[in-house]
Design a protein around this nucleic acid. Structure first.
Lengths: 166, 166, 166, 166
DNA sequence: CATGAATGAGACTTCATTCAT
DNA sequence: GATGAATGAAGTCTCATTCAT
């Protein structure tokens, strides 16, 4: 908290006028970042286009966001991997909000059209976002450098995992 | 440390007879768990069988291990997402040790045989293990319940992501 | 540290706003006391007067300071006899700062005038200050009570040890 | 205590068969060293010879002992400068035992003969041993190197401090 | 409203001592 | 008698939070 106050150029006590305590600050910051992330992913969403195209839009937008906002990405990740984020997950996938809803809708459609495997939503989430998160982390840690081509190929490969083999 | 001592039913100072300090304890515990994990994955490895079969072996063994040892899994995950594990990642993938080596060898072979997409190793790792980790976490948090069938289908889907589309 | 905080009537953590850690506290306190001691010894220094008179000034001022500030004296002594003060000694005698410089200059002059024995500086330090410190300690411990006359006679005797026998 | 046990090649608990506790060990070790020191100083003591000669014997023996047994010397010094040694001092000078007695006898005689200044015993102790201790410390710390000549000159200078100026 | 000095619970660690073997 | 694993009080230090100014 002291460090945050200093970087913010305010007194240590001032933070507590805006956030009840450290936990609240952490949670609110997360929620703000999440809103930003969701908004970015929704930008230019190709409504009405084939399932595959919409999937690729979401995947590439997400991966690009993570690697171009490394601090935000690390924060979101750490949040998810902390006690704070434990309860979060279920709500997120089950709720009808923002990004998640978009993706769930997409899958539902895909399953109905038989272009997507008939698997539980959690499995689809894992197949679609697991690799993206993992790779974004590697990029942020400097273990690999992702260019536009690699981003596209990766998301395409995720699609291959999800899509129904005809 | 106090909590560990209490759960172990020993005095606070006793821990320090076995571990120089907190960091050493954390690191050694991780290394022990990792050895256990690698050993499990290698059990019954179908050497000589097709790439796909070997891939499915590794994937399912890993996923089963994670959900049947939820505490170990959570610990390993947290370790990776902590300052301790920061440097670990690159070494792990680049080194020729244990599990990683097995998997790298598999990919190399798969790429040579043109049954696996020609992508960088980090991308393959992400495609193969990202979903497994993500799903294991969901299972451990109680968000989904994986049975043997779902485990198999998930790893199969990972294979679909990795394999070359003919 | 707990005891210091309590005697200071502050919380345990408050000390660390003023001193980075225990070592810094100990060192800074010493430096402050030393400055005070040196300033006292320099008060009314009879520049230009004979070597003997200047020597007596330093010796008596020092001895008086030690017995009138027993806590300061004990602290300085303990500091010198601790790992902190180990390296201090050589620097002190060799450096050209404060009190030490005054004394070294005095000796040099005395040796040139042949009123002081031609011995290494460390020996002179020992002859001049060894007895003063030893006696101050005795006084502080209540083993002897020094009055103005005894102070003078003692320092005079130190001078007898240092001065050249003609 | 652990370190002592290890260097002694015994178990940690074994020490407590020979010493009730740490304090007792420290005190007994000191007493042993002191006996050794006193015995050394008394070796070849020139009973019946002039006061000056006897004084020089004690002083040089003492100084030589300190610099040739640096560890013993440091231990004795630290002991004196610790809470243990606080009470010790008075007893030592006032008691009629060993070394101290020898020295007190010497002074008494010297004062009677008017070859030694008529000063309290504590002052004489300071004048005689203060410089020796101080210089021994410097030698042990490597700040100065004492040879036989310097040892003699130093003790002679101590004598000059003590002796009556005729 | 903002400040930042003060707080004190709690974290990690050490070490003299004990006691079952 | 000897051992050394276990102990736990006490030490240093951190940091989220408060409150007088």
């Amino acid at each position: 908290m002291a460090e945050i106050a200093e970087k913010a150029g305010v007194g240590a006590g001032t933070i507590y006028r805006y956030f009840d305590n450290k936990d609240v600050l952490i949670i609110q910051l997360y929620q703000e970042l999440e809103r930003d992330l969701v908004a970015t992913v929704q930008e230019g969403f190709p409504t009405g286009k084939p399932v595959r195209e919409r999937f690729l839009h979401i995947g590439t937008k997400l991966l690009r966001y993570c690697i171009s906002h490394p601090l935000y990405f690390r924060y979101i990740e750490q949040y998810h991997n902390s006690p704070y984020g434990a309860s979060l997950r279920k709500d997120k996938i089950m709720d009808k909000s923002g990004d998640q809803h978009l993706f769930k809708q997409l899958l539902k459609e895909g399953i109905a059209e038989r272009v997507v495997k008939d698997l539980p939503i959690f499995v689809h989430f894992a197949l679609a976002f697991g690799p993206v998160i993992s790779l974004a982390r590697d990029h942020v840690l400097g273990l690999v450098t992702l260019d536009e081509e690699l981003i596209f190929k990766t998301v395409e490969a995720c699609w291959d995992g999800i899509k129904e083999n005809t």
